[in-house]
Structures are given as structure tokens and as C-alpha cells.
Amino acid sequence: MMEGQSVLLRNPASHALWRRIIRHRSVYLVASISFIYFIIFKYIPIWNAQIAFRDFQALKGVTGSPWVGLKNFSDFVNSYYFWELIRNTVFYSVGKMAFSIPAAVFLAVALYECRIYGLRKTVQTMAYLPHFLSWVIMYAILLAILSPSNGILNDIIKAFGGEPVSFMTDTKYFPWIVILSDTWKETGWSAIIFLAALMGIDPSLFEAASVEGASAWQRVRYITLPAIKPVIVVVLLLRLGTVLDAGFNQIFMLYSLPVYSVADIIDTWIYRQGILEFRFGLATAVGLFKGVFGLLLIVVSNKLIKRYTGNGLY
């Protein structure tokens, strides 16, 4: 790139670099818009996170409040709700994974194998749609099914002579409502990545299989499922990286006082303590605990993904 012209220059490498920088000056100009956004909206909060180590007082501000060391952290770890929050959070993350990933794999394989065009397109359209509904809307849909007075499920129970059940406020049913409603909402969307992997299968494999006389079941067992196995592993590892995100919007919309013991997750607790009770230092410490732990999990899962597929996420 720089041979010939650079012979006379004292430091050709840096000269070429400068020329490249100057040539791209307008790119830096427009990118600085996004850069400033990132500094303000993404890096100032990281700076603000230091109040996890302070006794935050609004009047004294972030840097003026007195240091308290790890007090906020030890308050959290030693409190009686610590294990309950961790348990609920991990339970919902793992529970959702256990239901929605097998369902998504089945849906993707079924859509891929289905020969009826109209059925395939209708299921695809209907299955992706709920991903775009907010949990406020989901709550209304759940009410139409589960409400003791108007829900169809309670209607069926009453038709069989049973007593209507208040599902949403019962600790027995609440965890199932959370897991199954998430499966209902997100399975279609999760299936897309498997469907994309299926599209990439070499068709000659299927031709060879049919020449060999393989049945459709054997095709799925020995070609289709092995082809998406790496994607399943990557999706599982990705979910591992976000295991502490159990779905704030969902739980917040669905839960109520009677089910707090089985519903409360780290994020809903942070919201109540930080925003409603003004315990900023404590809530920040828990958020930071979650952030650092989440970072570790993502780094580990990315390492595993890199080892497994040869390609990392970043």
C-alpha cells in the first residue's frame, strides 16, 4: 500500500496511519455522536455503581456520600432473603430453558419437515407473533384464561363440578404460570435460530440417505438433529450466561403479595428496595453483585462456545 512513495519519509508507517485517519475524519465526526451517547448513557452508570460501597445520601451525591466498604454486600449476603432470591432466580431461568428449548427444537424440526405449505406458514406467523407482545398484554391474555370469574380454564373446572381456583395468587400454581407463559410467548422466536441452522444442511445428505433407504425418522435422528446439535449447545451456553436474568417484566407484571415467596427474583427485589424503599446503596450492591456475576458467566460461556465451535461471540 505504501511502497514507493514512502522511501523518502522518515517514519512511513505513522505517516500512512495519519493519512488513513485524515481520510476517515468525517467517519470519526459522525461516530463521535454515538461515542458521546455511550459515555453518558453507558459509562456514567458504571461510574455511579460506586455507591454500592457507600452509604448513599441523595443530598451528598454519588461522590460525596461516605464510604462503607463492603457493608451493603454483607447486609445482602447475610439476609434471610438472599438464598430465596438466588433460588427463585435460578429456578425460573433453568425452568424456562428446560421447557422452551426442547419445544423450540421440536417446532423448528416440525416446520422444516412439514410438507403442507399453508400449515407451515400459518404456524410460523402465529408462533413468532407473541414475542412482540408486551407482558402487559400477556397479563390480559392470562386473565382471560385463568381469572376465577371469566377465565376459560375455571369455566372448564366449574363444568366438571369443581371450585374456581385463583391461579395467579396461589404459590402452587404461580411458578408454572411463569414458566408456561414464557414458553408460550418465546418458543416460536427461539425456534428461528434452529430453523436458520436447518436451512444450512447440505441437501445431498438427504439424497444419500434416501438412496440408502433411510426412513424419515432415521433422517431426523441421524442428519437433522446432529446438524443442529452445535446450535443447541451454543443456545444453552448463551442462556447460562444470562441465568441471573429471570425476566423482570414478566414477574413484575404477574406477581402479587401472596406469591412473593415463590415469585421474587433478584431484579424485582432490586426494584422494590432501590426505587420504592430508597435503599440505593443496598440495591446498587445487589445489582453490582448480579452484574459482576453475569460478566463472569458470559466470559465463561463465551470461552466454552469458542472451544466448542471455534468462534466466539465477541
Binding site: I46, N48, A283, G291, Y314
Partner: peptide, 9 residues
């Protein structure tokens, strides 16, 4: 990769 959480935001 690193989310400092609700309160700092």
C-alpha cells in the same frame, strides 16, 4: 457485557 444495574441508571 457488564450491566451496572438499575439504580446507577
Amino acid at each position: 457485557l457488564f450491566n451496572p444495574g438499575l439504580v446507577p441508571n
